[in-house]
Structures are given as C-alpha cells and as structure tokens.
Amino acid sequence: MEEKLKEIIDVIRINKLSYLEILQLLQEKFNFVPMDYLNKICEMLEIPKSKIYGILTFYSQFSTNERGKYLIRICDGTACHVKGATKLIEMLKRNYHLEDGKTTQDKKFTLQVVACLGGCFLAPVCMINSHYHGSLDENKLKNILESLK
C-alpha cells in the first residue's frame, strides 16, 4: 500500500488535482474508492474528510464497496426505459440476485443502473466493463453474461 499511496500522492500533487479529481483518480485506479487510501490521502494532504466525503456521496459514479470483476451498467434512460430496460433489470434481480449498486457473492458481477449511456438508438443498452451491448432483450443479456468467465 505504501508505495502505491506515494505514487497516488505524487500524481495529485503534480497535477494539482481537485477533490473531485482525487476521487475520480481512485475510482479509475481501483474501480472503487477504497476508504483506507482516501483516509490516508486526507491526512497526508490535510484535506478535511468532511469536504471530500460530501463530494463522494454527492456523485453517483463513486462506490466505496469493492466491485465485481464485471461492472454491468444497465441503462434506464428514457429511450431504454420505453424499450424495456425495466425487464432487463428485473431479470438481473431474479437470476443473479443483483440490486443497483450491489455485487454478486462470487464477486463476479456488480450492477449499476444509469440514465443514458449515449447509445439511445440501440436501446435498450448496457455496458459491461468498457463494452457496449445494444438491442438487448432478457435472453440476449443472459447469454452475454453466461459467456463471461
């Protein structure tokens, strides 16, 4: 941890990152915001924890829980909603016991419900890690998830 922490602190100092950018950096590096790192960073850079906690909880992109191997971002924006996104979310709840923000016990999948992924013309859409999948239905999504190791 020591070495990684030093690296992160250096990046923050060199680039004069704002509080929001510090959180974005952690989220990008770890896929979530690890509180042990965040607390150490606050102490070392003399950042009030209340300030950074306020930002952390304001933006929905951040998660303080470790995420699964695959982050499933299901779009429930308007276009996807009218094209049946609710059914996809229900399927994930039923078959994988997922909830928005929750991770499966085997740490394979994490579900995040988001509003619009910018692929409205392919609705309903989801993103699994950095891959887009469009024109989904329950079976198609199930098959995609089952093909993931």
Partner: peptide
C-alpha cells in the same frame, strides 16, 4: 461523475471547480 444537476450552469461550474 454522475449527477444530472451538473448540467445546470452554476452547478456545472462548481463541479469543474471540484466541488
């Protein structure tokens, strides 16, 4: 970082400022 209200101009400015 996932907040619709950040499209509002004064909120957008606060967000760019890292708040």
């Amino acid at each position: 970082a996932g907040a619709f209200v950040c499209g509002e101009e004064t909120a957008l400015i606060a967000s760019i400022e890292g708040k």
